[in-house]
Amino acid sequence: MMARGTRKLLMMVILLEFTTDIWMLPAPGGVFMDSMDMRHVLRWTQPKSSCNTVVVYAVQYQGEFEFLVKNGSWINAPECQKIPLTMCDLTFELGSDSDYSLRVRAQCGSELSAWTTFPFNRNNMTPPVPEIKVMTAGDVLLVSVRKFPLTSITRVMMWKGDEEQQAKAHLMPADQEVLQVAALQEGAVYCVKAQVFLNSGMQSGYTDSHCVSITGPGAPAWKEPTTVTLTVIIMLGLLIGLFWSIVHCRPGSCQKYFQKEPLPLSLKGNFDLQININHQREEYCEETPCLLSSVRGEKT
């Protein structure tokens, strides 16, 4: 009797799981990590389903801390909750060299799929070939490398002329922006190439060789910016002094510096013309009889 009850219970559980698998939304497939230039993007394919609405996705991740200390808890990727895209940028979430577990599931309306899990460790990813720039300043060779995460180191190989077999290695941590190699031979040609490697031992390929000619000893690196700074300070001081002198200059003191020169005689005009109308009239009347006076005399 007991065995029959157990069988029936087992059959019901199997049937329930079978029907659940039939009606449940299929889980996303083809999950993989697309890592390029130390950027990590999780991608997947859309499940085949007859969903009447847009299928959205949710992504979670779990690091060693969540697995060991927080009893296997999962963290929601902030930018990847209910998104219609089949990709999720997890570059900032996967910020350490520990092992991670990633998972993604689909949702159609109120129907959810199962989680698809994907393991990841960024140290297992091959770092990209670095980008470098090579310049010279006098007898100094400067090599700048694009920044990488703090777990990476750039190895710069340097040699003179065609002596690549005798190349010397220079190591640059990720927080060092420029490598300087001084006291090089004037007129000689130096070549460099670089690669990136991680603490795990994974390394990129080498860059192409970059060769430059050394022009000769030049001014120290500090001299040019120091000269520019001193020039700016001196000019600013002169302008401030001139402005202060103009504002605080007394009238008596300033007159000897700002004297008004008189105009030359050749530029002066003679405007002292005086016309005496009455005097001219009297002279005119003396020479010719005044008609007006004679007319008045006749009337009287």
Rank of each mutant, 00 (worst) to 15 (best):
K299H: 06
G218M: 06
F243D: 08
C290D: 14
M135W: 03
L265E: 13
K268S: 08
L9V: 08
E286W: 03
D99A: 09
E287G: 02
W74C: 10
E298R: 10
S113P: 02
M202N: 12
G138K: 07
I22T: 06
R43Y: 02
E17N: 05
I22F: 03
L239G: 05
Y284I: 06
D139H: 06
M235F: 03
P173R: 09
A167V: 07
E164I: 09
M202R: 13
V189K: 08
V56L: 07
N52Q: 13
G241L: 12
C285D: 12
P289C: 10
T116N: 02
R155F: 03
T288W: 05
L141S: 04
C88N: 01
L10G: 11
F148G: 08
L179P: 00
M158W: 03
N199C: 01
K256S: 10
A27Y: 01
N121T: 11
Y57Q: 07
I83D: 03
C51G: 05
S200E: 09
T45P: 01
N76A: 08
E287C: 04
K268M: 14
L236A: 15
I214S: 02
V178D: 06
A183D: 15
G205I: 09
V228K: 10
A106K: 03
G216H: 06
S73T: 15
V145Y: 00
V129L: 08
K223E: 13
S96K: 04
A58E: 11
M36N: 11
A221K: 10
G205W: 05
T136G: 06
E66C: 01
G269K: 12
K168R: 15
V55A: 07
D208P: 00
L85Q: 14
A106I: 02
M12W: 08
Q165D: 11
R7T: 14
M2T: 14
L236C: 09
A169G: 00
T226Q: 13
L10P: 00
V55D: 05
Q166L: 11
L239P: 00
F65I: 12
G95D: 15
R296S: 08
V104S: 01
P173H: 03
R105I: 03
E111F: 02
C51V: 13
D37I: 05
P173N: 13
G237A: 11
E186W: 01
G205Y: 06
Q62S: 11
S266M: 07
G187A: 09
P26V: 03
A183E: 14
P149W: 08
E64C: 01
R250G: 04
Q60P: 00
N121G: 02
Q203A: 15
D99V: 04
V55T: 15
Y61F: 15
T229Y: 10
L184D: 06
T215G: 04
Q259W: 05
R146A: 14
